[in-house]
Design a protein around this nucleic acid. Structure first.
Lengths: 328, 328
DNA sequence: CTGAAAGCGCTTACAG
DNA sequence: CTGAAAGCGCTTACAG
């Protein structure tokens, strides 16, 4: 049964039949108790720039599931890499390898560098799961994240509901290196697609803000707004609070704002009514699920669903309090 | 440590201090392995009238968590009672008692009868958790459900978005015995409250449909619609598909529909565009969480949060596919 | 290679 | 009352 040594094919089948007939289920409690072998999972996520930042949330979910799994002798090492320096990803990736983990949860933020890490994991037979975004053609154990295009459709619909069809709207990306940010592009595509299907003549423009290290982007954006006079702005990521700040400072009150993710600053602007909708993706649940699937696959030897798209939540002032975070 | 016999207070404290200093955590695996004592949880939910009906969903969540907890020697007995006959509740309640369970999850559908059951559970020291709705002043281990008033606010906001402020809207309850259906009343209150705060002059009327056993309600409702000409209808529970059916049959296409819960028929009308929004409450998650809390309380002896309001999800044609059910 | 013993960290029936 | 042994259902090092 444990594939120890050679057994005649016939005997093997006979035993397997009996096992099957008795519907034998090994007792995991007894087996983890008897086996002293500890299990190590490693996570590799972007470094959150502040305690309220988005990437703390998947980590909270990871921690929760790890804590629950503590009796199974599972521990985790949570590594992070710089969101502005791709060489740091490579450095952390080699730490991942050095730890020789039994499983890895990975946000493949820099795709080129991530492909290299995945290559090594595969040769070492270390199972891995993608979170947030995925690399194609590398067959991970699972992908846990959202469907960005579809969430763009939702953003489009909501924008369609709260703006006059005759008035223009704007899409804003706060990001550098857009090529690595496939998410944002997909959200934008979905947004445009909704209007293509439902309000063909809607006027939409897209702007990128790649540098927010000083305030110079603000006056540029302010001019842009004066020129194109949008009635609504869709910010494709969690940094919608930056736009909210700008509108507040400039005392612009007739522009509707839609953005992503329930980080603390966004929550505040949602409550003030400056942000109309936030589209959310339950990052804590994603972290929790990623670890759970690794556990199911590595320890329980069960097959897990390969893809796990989390729900696309529409959060407003009225229901925001019921999208609470895990307690840490 | 196991409170066996008498120990001098001093010695007791000394030991407890050492235990504390060493940060001793008992190993649950070893303890459940050694203890042959099985644990029985009982659930008592309304009987689902069809395989697609709402109350199958909490049950699916219950089953999922029970299955996960199987190695802990936890089993469950899932009892149901008739939604149209309160005496059946009492009959099933006495079966609950006869089973002498280690914990109970209870939907207190008929409040008077439920109070009696809770009374007995308390004298027998059997912990219980409410699901879906709760009884006041009986201190359950936890309540798992939604905030109905708040979800009414969400319904109001959405209705406000998709209807002209100058046009009337209608609230429809499909229910008999409204006094026992506090949920529906609270949802209605929240709905009115949103308009009170945001569109004071909005015209809203409420209608009750208590008998849908034959089709006679349909012509009555059709007349009602012809008279009051609502632009939108809010159905306060999962039976919004009945209204959708009526609108479809009568070929009425200019009325917006908002309702509750992602049952299969509602999903279909959402896809067809006849229902604009469904407000949902993750019933599978509620069942799952109820069992989990019972487990945390009974087996792990941990304190659990007393109330657990689930999120108020806004589901549209664009995001419906990502609110999937558990696999059974 | 393979059978049988020791041991994982607890609980509980039992002997003293 | 209370200490010490047996046993829960497995894994793994070990002897043959």
């Amino acid at each position: 049964m444990h594939n120890r040594g050679e057994v005649a094919e016939q005997t093997r089948n006979k035993i397997l039949k009996i096992v099957n007939d008795l519907n034998y289920q090994p007792n995991i409690m007894a087996s983890t108790l008897a086996s002293k072998k500890p299990v190590l999972f490693v996570t590799l996520f972007p470094q959150p720039p502040s305690p309220d930042a988005y990437w703390n949330k998947p980590l909270a979910g990871v921690r929760k599931r790890i804590q629950e799994l503590q009796p199974y002798r599972i521990t985790a090492e949570n590594l992070t890499f710089s969101q502005i320096d791709s060489t740091d990803f490579t450095a952390q990736a080699s730490r991942v390898i050095d730890l020789n983990p039994d499983g890895v949860v990975l946000a493949p933020f820099y795709s080129r560098e991530a492909y290299k890490l995945v290559e090594i994991l595969k040769t070492k037979n270390i199972p891995f799961i993608f979170i947030d975004s995925e690399l194609k053609n590398v067959s991970p154990v699972a992908y846990v994240g959202q469907d960005s295009f579809q969430s763009g459709l939702v953003a489009g619909k909501l924008m369609g509901l709260i703006t006059n069809p005759a008035r223009p709207v704007m899409v804003v990306h706060f990001a550098k290196e857009m090529d690595n940010m496939n998410h944002l592009v997909e959200r934008e595509r979905g947004f445009y697609e909704w209007f293509r299907q439902n309000q063909t003549n809607k006027k939409i423009i897209t702007r990128e803000v790649s540098d927010t290290s000083d305030n110079s982007w603000e006056s540029d954006m302010h001019n842009e707004i004066r020129n194109s006079k949008p009635e609504g702005i869709f910010v494709t990521n969690s940094r919608v609070y930056l736009m909210a700040q700008l509108l507040q400072k400039a005392k612009i009150e007739d522009i509707r704002l839609i953005g992503h993710d329930l980080v603390e600053q966004n929550r505040r602007y949602l409550r003030k009514g400056i942000v109309s909708f936030l589209i959310c993706q339950r990052p804590e649940e994603q972290g929790y699920n990623a670890i759970d699937r690794l556990y199911q696959h590595v320890i329980r030897k069960r097959k897990v669903d390969e893809s796990n798209y989390t729900s696309i939540d529409v959060v407003t002032n009225e229901n925001v309090d019921y999208y609470r975070e895990f307690k840490h």
